[in-house]
């Protein structure tokens, strides 16, 4: 396994100044349980990177370390370097709140704010920070709902509760809400695992469109999804990064036996 990591370090430099994230020696814990063990990996700019692996392998923990959300859980902590645009986000002078505005996140279960309308949900990140004038908000709402491919479905329901939409629409509303803060990176943590196939297809299509403006990291249980949407794939097992490579290589000619067994469905 150590060899695989070394092989990856070479690939890391391959991204050059196209590396959005460079993760070095990342370890994470929940209390005494170590969830991530010495992860070394890079994420390429304007590319979709998929994180695959069986349940409990640390995939979600990994992406939650990238926007410093992991540390919000009581008893959770992490160590190591996560260099984002040349700056370690774990430096003591970095404010996690500002980091999270640049690195957005979409969660497994659609989680629109139930006390807010569709409209308010989209601009939640903006109004709560007073970053936009009221007159500009209408424009913002339409722009990001269109970008999230939701505008046509909800344009007459803007002032209804966000919780009344279908779950597929709710998830796209959450994507619009994330986009409205104008981050550079969007982390998707199993965004379609609670959705039907049609909603899933819509969100995958959406991701392809977002790639040119955003860097995307997606955690997924669904290997076909990883194969469809991503350019690079990392395979996690028991808290370790087993293999990281171009997606087509991971799925057609993986270097590690464990990766091969997982992608061919022999375990997990």
């Amino acid at each position: 396994m150590q060899e695989i990591n070394k092989e990856f370090r070479v690939r890391s430099s391959e991204f050059g100044d196209k590396a959005k994230f460079i993760i070095e020696g990342l370890n994470a814990w929940f209390g005494r349980n170590q969830a991530l063990k010495n992860i070394n990996m890079s994420v390429k700019q304007n590319e979709v990177t998929a994180i695959i692996g069986p349940s409990g392998c640390g995939k979600s923990t990994f992406v939650r370390c990238l926007n410093r959300l992991h540390e919000e859980i009581i008893g959770a902590r992490c160590e190591g370097r996560v260099i984002f645009d040349g700056k370690d986000i774990y430096d003591p002078d970095v404010d996690p709140v500002l980091i999270r505005r640049r690195i957005g996140m979409v969660f497994q279960k659609p989680n629109p704010f139930p006390a807010m309308t569709v409209y308010e949900n989209v601009v939640a990140g903006l109004i709560l920070e007073g970053r936009k004038k009221k007159s500009e908000l209408d424009e913002v709402v339409e722009k990001f709902l269109r970008l999230a491919a939701l505008w046509d479905e909800v344009k007459d329901k803007l002032h209804q509760s966000g919780a009344r939409l279908s779950s597929g629409q709710q998830q796209r509303l959450c994507i619009a809400r994330t986009l409205a803060v104008e981050p550079d990176v969007i982390l998707f943590d199993e965004p379609t695992s609670a959705l039907d196939p049609i909603s899933t297809a819509k969100i995958e299509e959406l991701m392809q469109g977002l790639k040119k403006d955003y860097t995307i990291v997606i955690v997924t249980h669904n290997m076909q999804q990883a194969a469809r949407v991503s350019g690079y794939t990392g395979f996690f097992l028991l808290g370790e990064l087993i293999e990281f490579d171009r997606t087509n290589k991971i799925f057609t000619n993986p270097a590690n036996r464990l990766t091969e067994e997982y992608v061919t469905g022999r375990f997990g």
């Binding site: 926007n67 919000e72 709140v97 999270r100 969660f107 939640a124 990140g125 994330t178």
Partner: peptide, 9 residues
């Protein structure tokens, strides 16, 4: 809470 924190609130 996580959704809100992840928006940088």
């Amino acid at each position: 809470r996580e959704a809100s924190l992840a928006l940088g609130i």
